[in-house]
Computed example of a mutant assay.
Amino acid sequence: MMIRHIVLIRFRAEVTEAQIAAMFAELEEIRTKISGVLSITAGRSESPEKIERGYMHGFVVDFDGWDALEAYQTHPDHKALGAKLVAHADGGLDGILVFDLPVGE
């Protein structure tokens, strides 16, 4: 069963798009270090509905199962990037939403 890991981030106003792009580039680097990562998509919302409520950036990581998600969560590079995201988020951890969705059977 595939696991879709969805992360939405409300960055502080002073965080630049270049800083965000650098953090998302780190996310791509992690991909090469953990087996079971199927895809990573990251970026800024372009929703015509405009109801992001400040969560203008995010990423989705598809894993081939719960074990791969656990390997990602416990990997030191993920922990370092996670700390960086929290440090740049508006309100720290309160500025980040995480949603893990099982897809398929």
Score class of each variant (00 low, 15 high):
56 M>L: 15
24 F>N: 12
99 F>M: 06
74 T>W: 03
83 A>S: 06
47 S>C: 07
56 M>S: 10
71 A>V: 08
89 A>R: 03
59 F>A: 00
94 D>R: 14
77 D>V: 06
84 K>L: 01
44 R>K: 07
57 H>S: 06
85 L>H: 03
72 Y>K: 00
51 I>P: 02
19 Q>K: 06
72 Y>D: 01
61 V>I: 11
35 S>K: 03
67 D>C: 04
75 H>N: 12
31 R>Q: 14
38 L>Q: 15
97 L>G: 02
61 V>L: 04
61 V>F: 05
54 G>I: 10
48 P>H: 09
16 T>A: 09
37 V>H: 02
15 V>I: 13
53 R>F: 04
98 V>E: 09
64 D>Y: 04
65 G>M: 08
72 Y>M: 05
47 S>M: 04
77 D>P: 09
56 M>Q: 03
41 T>W: 12
32 T>W: 13
34 I>P: 00
59 F>W: 03
56 M>H: 09
97 L>W: 00
50 K>F: 03
65 G>V: 12
92 G>L: 06
53 R>T: 03
44 R>H: 03
31 R>I: 04
56 M>D: 14
21 A>S: 14
76 P>F: 12
88 H>L: 15
58 G>V: 04
84 K>T: 08
85 L>Q: 00
82 G>Q: 06
45 S>H: 00
76 P>T: 09
23 M>W: 02
61 V>G: 01
52 E>R: 01
67 D>Q: 15
66 W>L: 14
28 E>N: 09
40 I>W: 11
65 G>Q: 05
48 P>A: 04
95 G>S: 00
46 E>D: 11
69 L>E: 15
49 E>G: 02
72 Y>Q: 06
47 S>K: 05
74 T>F: 06
31 R>C: 04
24 F>K: 11
71 A>E: 07
78 H>N: 02
46 E>K: 08
39 S>R: 05
58 G>R: 03
54 G>S: 05
77 D>Y: 12
92 G>Q: 13
51 I>A: 02
61 V>C: 03
89 A>V: 00
29 E>T: 14
96 I>V: 15
24 F>M: 12
33 K>Q: 02
73 Q>P: 04
33 K>C: 13
96 I>A: 07
